[in-house]
């Protein structure tokens, strides 16, 4: 459990790294919402009949059809494309922070990000076949379970979500298998990124392959990594619920809710950093070499930090 504690500790101590990720998150979310802002402001900016109403009301959420009839619906696709680009970019910096430690400097963060961006992009593409294989297991299992009459969330009839009982012993057990398969893939990806950084590997395919071998030889780490993901989900769920319990109706409450929402996202992003740190720990524990790249946290000539 110690690697888990260490990873979470790093995730929450690396607040500057999380802040960078939050900025990326904000950029994407703002781009999503941007088309709606003028439309919503025009419709509700001087609307006493909507004042004091919560989101779940006929005036607000159920009244959006006519408001958006002339356009202004939030956009999703383009901002998500931007997210892919930005996330691929900053992941190099995140790995650097997870591996190298030391003081945070934005320039160094961006430098590492830029240095590793293409290798990380190639690594991600090389990890996709593993994703297919990893998810193939729970998907195949789902069809097998369906054949013998056991429900899973993947094979459930759509109506079961409304009229039936989607969460059963069988479906939850299958969900656990699905989570483990996903954790396996995600850990391989994180380990591959760490290897790219620490060993300064130029061939992403080699890093991907080494990561798979390393992770497969450490099945306990997959369980711990899945536990880390479950813990992250639990924390986020509790924070989401706390956020949802806030009253609504005034500008002040809306701003308060937005602020609390940042705590939710912050927690999620901190766990993302923790996941990378966990992978770095796994590589270190396997006897991986120290970073072979120039540590950009220190000026040239200074003593390298570990």
């Amino acid at each position: 459990m110690r690697p888990l504690r260490d990873a979470i500790g790093v995730g929450f101590r690396e607040w500057r790294t999380v802040a960078v990720l939050l900025v990326v998150n904000w950029l994407v979310a703002l781009l999503m919402v941007a088309p709606s802002v003028p439309v919503l402001s025009a419709a509700f900016g001087h609307a006493p009949l909507a004042a004091g109403r919560p989101l779940m009301s006929s005036q607000l959420l159920l009244g959006l059809g006519p408001v958006f009839a002339g356009g202004g619906v939030p956009s999703v696709l383009a901002p998500l494309v931007l997210l892919v680009v930005l996330q691929t970019l900053v992941v190099g910096g995140v790995v650097w922070r997870a591996c190298a430690g030391g003081p945070f400097r934005l320039g160094a963060f961006l430098g590492q990000s830029g240095r590793l961006v293409w290798r990380n992009a190639r690594l991600y593409l090389w990890s996709l076949p593993l994703l297919v294989v990893a998810l193939g297991v729970p998907i195949g299992l789902a069809f097998g379970m369906k054949a013998i009459g056991l429900p899973t969330l993947l094979t459930l009839h759509g109506e079961a979500w409304l009229f039936g009982r989607p969460f059963t012993v069988a479906s939850v057990l299958h969900l656990v298998v699905l989570v483990l398969a996903f954790a396996l893939w995600r850990l391989c990806l994180d380990v591959g990124r760490v290897l790219l950084f620490r060993d300064d590997l130029r061939i992403a395919r080699r890093a991907a392959w080494r990561a798979v071998r390393l992770v497969v030889r450490a099945p306990r780490s997959v369980l711990l990594y899945a536990l880390l993901g479950a813990l992250a989900t639990l924390v986020v769920i509790l924070l989401v619920r706390a956020r949802a319990m806030l009253p609504e109706g005034t500008a002040g409450l809306a701003l308060l809710a937005l602020a609390v929402g940042q705590v939710v996202v912050w927690a999620r992003l901190a766990f993302q950093v923790a996941g990378t740190r966990f992978a770095a720990g796994l590589v270190e524990a396997s006897g991986g070499a120290p970073p072979a790249v120039e540590d950009l946290t220190e000026p040239p000539g200074a003593e390298r930090t570990g």
Binding site: L21, V24, N25, W26, V28, A29, L30, M32, V33, S36, V37, L40, S41, A43, F44, G45, H46, A47, P48, A50, A51, G52, R53, P54, L55, Q59, L60, L64, P74, V76, P79, L80, L83, Q87, R186, V240, R243, E248, G249, T250, A251, L253, A254, L255, A257, L258, G261, V264, V265, R268, L269, Q272
Partner: peptide, 25 residues
């Protein structure tokens, strides 16, 4: 009446952030 517009925009922003965080994972 900034309340309704901010409530809506705030919710959209929050939903967008959660979506981005989920996709980011």
């Amino acid at each position: 009446t900034p309340g309704p517009a901010l409530t809506m925009i705030g919710w959209f922003l929050y939903a967008g952030q959660l979506l981005a965080a989920a996709v980011g994972s």
